[in-house]
Structure formats: structure tokens, C-alpha cells
């Protein structure tokens, strides 16, 4: 078992607390099938070194894990990581989580963490740069999506504003897919040619339909496969991780 980053410094009044979904991402990315996939695609000799982005890191537990365990996961420590979160508190929390996690595993294991920046999904990304993108979305189906945060967002949030920050972390609107759809739409522009995305979905998101839609992009040049699941109930996987990437054979 690779060490799970310590997030004891994070204020869970303002930032999503690591839960079953976060740990499913850690478990899936450490599976031999995924480390083999990543090590083949991003071997030390395959230049340039991969750029890893987590969108919506919250506490930073996942990007902290990826950065601190670069060598066991990617086979080398030549990876660059960064994160984008709409919630400023999540950005500061993530910075500290990664710092602690990399201090624990030390040089030789850790990649280089760049920054956590505040933003809406992949909006600030220069196109075609991201090699590995990880997204644990707000996936719970809800009647409404909270209004997006804008620049006018506050420094010192009231209790209601704090609730909104947490709501933004789970409320997914129609089918729980409204935010995830926006992220998926941006993948072809954001990812590099060798880029791969890991996106978490819940059963209510209708993962089979989501995968079918991705497979129909750009004349069928994309692949989408379920690579990790948890919480099997009556034949349904409650949560799943879908890997999305361009088909190399095309």
C-alpha cells in the first residue's frame, strides 16, 4: 500500500473531505493495470516529462498521492503536477497537502508540484499540454446546479457561502452530469496527443451512456473504459472510474 496523504490540516467546513470516491481514485491509480498503462505511456525515455493535472482537488489528497508516489506509479519521478479548483480554500489546502505528502515520501519518489490555481475546470489551461488529467466531479444528481463562482467571490465567506462551496463540490445538476459534461467537452482541447483522463462517475450518471458518447467523438478516435469500481449493489457499481484516451491505433 502506498501512503495516503495526510489532510488533517484541512477545514472540512469549506473543503470537501476525502471520502469513498477519493479513495477509489487512489486505489484505481495504484492498480497494476493502471501503473502498467502509465509506465508504458509515460516511461522515463518518453519525452517530454508528463504534466499531470487534477481538476477540483478539494483537500488535495489525490494530487498529493500522485505527486508523492510518482516513482511507484509512473516508474520515475520526472513528472510535473498541478491542480485547478474553483474554491480558493481548496487551493491552499492542496498546496499544503502536497507539501506534506512529498516531504514524507521524499526525493526519489516525488515528482515536482507546480501550483494549485483558482479557476473553473480547465479554463486557464494552455491547450494540448495536459498528459494525465484526474477529475472527481460534483456527480450527485440534483434539481439545480449552484450558480458558478465568479471573480466577485468573497474573501471571508459567511456560513451560507461556505455551504455553497461544499455544495459546489458535490451537486451535479441533471443526471449529476452538468459539470462533468463541461469537463468532457474540454478534453480534446486540453489533453496532449498522448493524454489520458481518469473521470469518476456514479451509477446515476449512466456511465455506459457516457462511455458510448465519448467513443463516438471525432469519428470514433477516442476510447473510454471502466478501470475501477466500488460499492457493488444488486449488480450496479455505485462508483466507477472511467479512463478516457485517444486511440493510438488510429
Amino acid at each position: 500500500m502506498l501512503p495516503t496523504p495526510d489532510t488533517s490540516h484541512v477545514s472540512y467546513n469549506r473543503v470537501y473531505e476525502p471520502a469513498e470516491d477519493s479513495f477509489l481514485l487512489l486505489d484505481t491509480l495504484s492498480l497494476p493495470s493502471e501503473t502498467t498503462f502509465l509506465q508504458t505511456r509515460f516511461s522515463k525515455d518518453a519525452l517530454p516529462p508528463p504534466l499531470v493535472l487534477e481538476v477540483g482537488p478539494g483537500s488535495g489528497v489525490v494530487i498529493g498521492f500522485l505527486t508523492a508516489n510518482a516513482t511507484p506509479l509512473f516508474g520515475h519521478d520526472h513528472i510535473l503536477t498541478f491542480a485547478i479548483d474553483v474554491n480558493r480554500f481548496a487551493c491552499s489546502a492542496t498546496g499544503l497537502t502536497v507539501k506534506k505528502a512529498t516531504a514524507e515520501t521524499g526525493a526519489g519518489s516525488s515528482g515536482v508540484f507546480l501550483d494549485a490555481v483558482q479557476g473553473d475546470l480547465t479554463n486557464p489551461c494552455r491547450p494540448g499540454q495536459v498528459d494525465v488529467l484526474v477529475f472527481n466531479p460534483p456527480y450527485v444528481p440534483t434539481d439545480e446546479l449552484p450558480a458558478p463562482l465568479t471573480k466577485e467571490g468573497n474573501e471571508k465567506p459567511t456560513f451560507e457561502e461556505e455551504s455553497k462551496l461544499l455544495e459546489l463540490a458535490y451537486a451535479g445538476g441533471k443526471d449529476g452530469m452538468e459539470t462533468t459534461e463541461r469537463l468532457l467537452d474540454a478534453l480534446p482541447e486540453t489533453l496532449s496527443a498522448r493524454g489520458v483522463a481518469y473521470v469518476l462517475l456514479c451509477a446515476g450518471n449512466r456511465p455506459e451512456e457516457v462511455k458510448d458518447r465519448i467513443r463516438s467523438w471525432a469519428g470514433g478516435s477516442w476510447k473510454a473504459e471502466t478501470v475501477g469500481t466500488s460499492g457493488r449493489q444488486a449488480g450496479w457499481e455505485r462508483l466507477s472510474i472511467v479512463r478516457v484516451w485517444r486511440d493510438d491505433d488510429q
Partner: peptide, 10 residues
């Protein structure tokens, strides 16, 4: 404080 804010005005 070292964090860039890329959220856009309404």
C-alpha cells in the same frame, strides 16, 4: 498569497 485567480467576472 501565491495563488492565481482565474475565475472570470460575471
Amino acid at each position: 498569497e501565491g495563488i492565481a485567480n482565474f475565475l472570470l467576472p460575471t
